[in-house]
């Protein structure tokens, strides 16, 4: 979209890059709904201690009771309130997803920047390590790591964080390779600016958008991975609730068929979270792409 404006009226407020992105983002109805949904979920999980009707780890009713006025989503096999556990579990799952994404993005960005900007043997070494990490069967690597280090909240965050970075590293490296040839980077070099200034002040701001888009998919993936690991008993350990280990009950066929309140809430929340994060990512990608005409 090209907006013509008179050149000599600099006082007119102009739409900044960020405003343009916002405008394009809000054209995606699905993404806006997803964003609202995600915000509500985040708010509920953050406020869990205030709104949860029961202590998530206390036995407050009979075993595997169906939903009732006292227990809106019923109780689990140990007699704990499912709704309370769901609120706290979402908290843990979001925390794991967010922290793992943060760790892997930071690692990936730093390695990608170094690799792309300095090139040479450093690029060679970093990219071979990246290839190696990428070529391992993902779930196997995570399982082995979880077996070696004890399962637990911190470890699961670290494991997922250290496994997800290669994609980010490659993405950033590719961007840096093209950005370092641009004239504005060249002119910073001619101005004698330091390498760190060029990397973090000239190059990095221009790759933030694609990194952000990629990070959303890592976020969704991390939530799914946490759920998978916890379901297998290698992730967040009981009694701490997470969306994954709440699905443990679904291992048995009788529960699967006759006591859906034990697994449907957690299962559908995982799906909805992953889906809405991906929708947001899609919209972000379109919004930051200057060639998109939507």
């Amino acid at each position: 979209m090209i907006k013509l404006k008179p050149v000599n009226t600099p006082s007119s407020p102009s739409s900044t890059y960020n405003q343009q992105i916002m405008r394009r983002f809000f054209k995606h109805k699905l993404a806006v709904i997803s964003l609202i949904f995600l915000c509500v979920i985040i708010l509920l999980s953050v406020l869990a201690p205030l709104i949860a009707p029961y202590d998530p780890n206390r036995i407050t009713g009979g075993f595997s009771q169906a939903p009732s006025a006292e227990h809106w989503l019923g109780t689990d096999q140990s007699g704990r309130d499912v709704l309370s556990r769901l609120l706290y579990g979402t908290r843990i799952s979001l925390l794991v997803g967010f922290m793992a994404t943060l760790i892997s993005t930071v690692i990936g960005v730093v390695l990608g920047l170094l690799s792309g900007y300095f090139g040479g043997w450093l690029d060679m070494v970093i990219m071979r390590i990246t290839d190696m990490v990428m070529s391992f069967p993902y779930i196997l690597l995570v399982l082995v790591a979880a077996a070696i280090f004890e399962p637990g909240l911190t470890n699961i965050i670290l494991i997922l964080g250290f496994v997800d970075w290669p994609g980010v590293a490659r993405l950033v490296r590719g961007n840096v390779l093209s950005l370092r040839e641009t004239n504005f980077v060249k002119s910073a070099e001619v101005a004698g600016m330091s390498k760190w200034y060029i990397l973090f002040s000239e190059i990095l701001p221009n790759t933030v958008a694609p990194i952000l888009v990629y990070a959303t998919s890592v976020f969704a993936l991390s939530i799914l991975d946490e759920a998978a690991l916890s379901y297998l008993g290698m992730g967040v350990t009981l009694p701490t609730a997470s969306l994954g280990n709440m699905l443990n009950g679904a291992e048995s066929l009788t529960i699967l068929t006759s006591k859906p309140w034990l697994w449907v809430p957690a299962g559908s929340l995982i799906i909805l979270l992953a889906l809405s994060i991906n929708f947001i990512g899609d919209a972000l990608r379109d919004a930051v792409d200057p060639t998109s005409t939507k």
Partner: peptide, 12 residues
């Protein structure tokens, strides 16, 4: 530089 469009950092 020649091209005034690519010689200024768009984010600054």
């Amino acid at each position: 530089f020649q091209d005034p469009y690519s010689s200024l950092n768009p984010r600054k």
